Simulated scan of single mutants.
Amino acid sequence: MSNDLRQQPADVSLHADGPGVVPDRFPAARAHEAGASLARTGAAVLLGRDATADALVVAAAEVLGSRLAELYPQRLRTSRDGEPVHLHADSFDLTVDVGGVQRRRRDPDEDFVLVQCVRPAPAGGDSFAVDAHRVVDDLASGDPELHAFLTGVDVDLYGVWAGLRGLPAVPRVGRHVEYTRTGRRIVRRTDGAAPLHRDPDADRVQAMLARLDRAVRAMEPALPRFRLDEGDILVLDNYRCWHGRDAHTGERSVRILTLRSTDAR
């Protein structure tokens, strides 16, 4: 695809047939417009960036400006002949001791994530995303029982990983759908959710978590795909959008930056 075509914003950001999101794409000269697109659809792609850690930090500042509150350490992820990465929202709770000082490496309330393509896969590896707010709204009529679970039942958000060093011993209790004190809706999607300790409804909670997994994976094949080329940066509202990618052959590398804005919970 030519650079001229790639630099044009998409005509439709929300896929007409479902909750899939096709992010608008912004060359460097129009980066200042990305914030408005992000607010409207929850996603944007910044084009033509250097594939460097510094470029990722600069991009976060360009999009969020004075709303940028806290950055977490970047993560470089390389996969070879990678399996699919299913729809998820970035979320974790990890604290480490550095020279006797407690430092957060991840935060449960990261509200934005930037994914930079460092090396695209030779084949496959295309990205996809959904407006999770719309997914939940559709469940209200499509699967009221699952909707009631997501909006009304507490789980241990990271219980699956309870033995991991750095993860707090105190369970992080929450619901998949919650609101910040300023009214932002959070829709979580993590592989770490588990029933609360000695929850009398643990079997039902586990069954509903499995039901959510099936529902999410069932929507993935029909979602529109978009490709990130070297240096491109996908910016996502982590409270609103879930994202994933297709399987790929060869080597693919991305650099991930999660952060909290002043609007975070």
Rank of each mutant, 00 (worst) to 15 (best):
H248Q: 03
V101D: 09
R105F: 04
L157S: 10
H133R: 10
L87H: 02
T190F: 02
C117M: 14
D4F: 11
L139P: 06
G100K: 13
S261M: 08
F128A: 14
V173L: 15
C241R: 02
Q116D: 11
A60N: 12
E220Y: 08
R185E: 12
R134Y: 00
D126T: 09
D137G: 07
Q7D: 10
H32Y: 00
A222T: 15
R260Q: 10
E83I: 04
V170W: 04
D97H: 04
R198L: 13
G231Q: 08
V216C: 05
A210V: 03
T249I: 04
T52M: 11
R134D: 04
A132Q: 02
H15D: 06
P221Q: 13
P19H: 09
E145K: 07
V101E: 12
S13T: 15
R260E: 03
T262D: 09
R227F: 00
V130W: 02
A193Y: 01
A89M: 10
A53Q: 08
R77W: 08
W161E: 15
D191K: 05
T190V: 13
S79T: 15
S261E: 04
V22I: 15
R172E: 14
V118L: 03
V12H: 13
R119E: 07
L68P: 05
L14G: 06
A29S: 14
I233E: 01
R188N: 02
S2F: 02
H248V: 01
A53I: 00
A55N: 11
Q206N: 13
G152K: 15
L71A: 09
V22N: 02
A43I: 07
V135L: 14
A16C: 02
S91Y: 00
A132M: 12
D107Q: 01
D54K: 12
D81R: 04
H176Y: 15
V22P: 01
E110Y: 01
L209A: 08
M219V: 15
S253N: 00
L157R: 13
D17P: 00
L164Q: 13
P221H: 06
P195N: 13
F149E: 10
T249G: 13
P84G: 02
V12F: 00
P23E: 03
F226Q: 05
R25T: 05
G159E: 03
A247T: 05
A123C: 11
S261W: 08
R227T: 09
L236W: 07
V22T: 15
L76W: 03
D246W: 01
P73I: 03
R181M: 12
L209H: 06
H197S: 14
L236N: 02
A69L: 05
A69M: 06
